[in-house]
């Protein structure tokens, strides 16, 4: 059997040297990698000892170290702002044992279609700090769409604006492992009855994630008492794949219905 070497860098620079090897497999502490995937590499770079496990408020942002696990993020965000959208979305993700292993950086790097992380990060206009071949601070949206940003590069931090939103999160569990078939994130800011700002993000469709700007524009600045939300999301230009006995049109219908429901709960309650 092939010998694979495990490396345990303690400093980011040391880790960056190791991942320059194209055959290096990065182990970010989560649950995604399989033994077979480890065998495809020459070496495994285990990031566990890097000082990237934290959630802190700084310079108008909430900064999350990329090796922070989901449960720690939920716990800390609930201290910072009870009911934070990321705590709502990550708190019920998978199970307690899995959430103790999944790291936010690993989850962003993989960004599977069933992720409970991506919708809220897009809605919050989160940024990601990268070190390595593509060092810098990038919108999460760019990181998810520009493959070249991932090569020989580590995520070290994820930043979200430290501002308060009313929020609503929905996950449709329609796949065999109860992963979300799609997710909906809605954030609103109101001043009395005026809807000052809104972000709506739908994930899980063939474009992976989408900010529903047309609906946002229809609603922004309006008096919430005067809003007619009936069928507000009908006719979305989005395609889903069929899932477990449900046609793509039916999944789309479910998503449209849930968006309307979320807006009613947030704006009419």
């Amino acid at each position: 059997m092939k010998k694979i070497k495990w490396e345990y860098p303690e400093q980011i620079e040391e880790a960056l040297d190791l991942i320059r090897d194209d055959k290096a497999v990065i182990h970010g502490g989560g649950t995604h990698l399989t033994s077979k995937q480890l065998n495809n590499g020459n070496r495994i770079v285990c990031l566990d000892k890097l000082p990237l496990n934290y959630v802190k408020r700084e310079d108008g942002s909430i900064k999350m170290g990329s090796l922070t696990d989901y449960n720690s993020i939920v716990e800390r965000l609930n201290e910072i702002e009870p009911g934070h959208i990321l705590a709502k979305s990550l708190g019920p993700a998978a199970t307690i044992s899995i959430r103790n292993r999944i790291t936010i950086g690993g989850s962003l790097r993989l960004a599977p279609n069933w992720s409970d992380l991506i919708g809220p990060l897009i809605a919050l206009e989160a940024r990601v700090k990268l070190k390595g071949a593509n060092s810098g601070l990038f919108p999460v949206k760019d990181y998810l769409t520009q493959k070249e940003l991932k090569s020989q590069t580590l995520i070290t931090e994820i930043l979200i604006p430290d501002t308060s939103w009313d929020s609503w999160y929905y996950r449709e569990g329609i796949t065999k492992n109860d992963h979300p078939g799609f997710t909906i994130t809605i954030l609103v800011k109101r001043k009395k009855n005026a809807l000052e700002d809104i972000a709506i993000v739908l994930t899980g469709h063939t474009d992976r994630f989408m900010r529903l700007s047309e609906i946002e524009d229809q609603l922004k600045g309006k008096d919430t008492d005067q809003l007619d939300l009936k069928d507000i999301a009908k006719g979305l230009d989005i395609k889903f794949v069929s899932a477990k006995g449900m046609s793509s049109d039916y999944v789309k219908h479910l998503a449209e219905t849930q968006i309307e429901r979320g807006l009613i709960e947030l704006l009419k309650s």
Partner: peptide
Amino acid sequence: GSCMVLLNGKPVNSCRVFTAA
């Protein structure tokens, strides 16, 4: 979850953890 152990006091599924990690 049948393979659960506590790792540094927190529950994890041991079937999803590499020993070397």
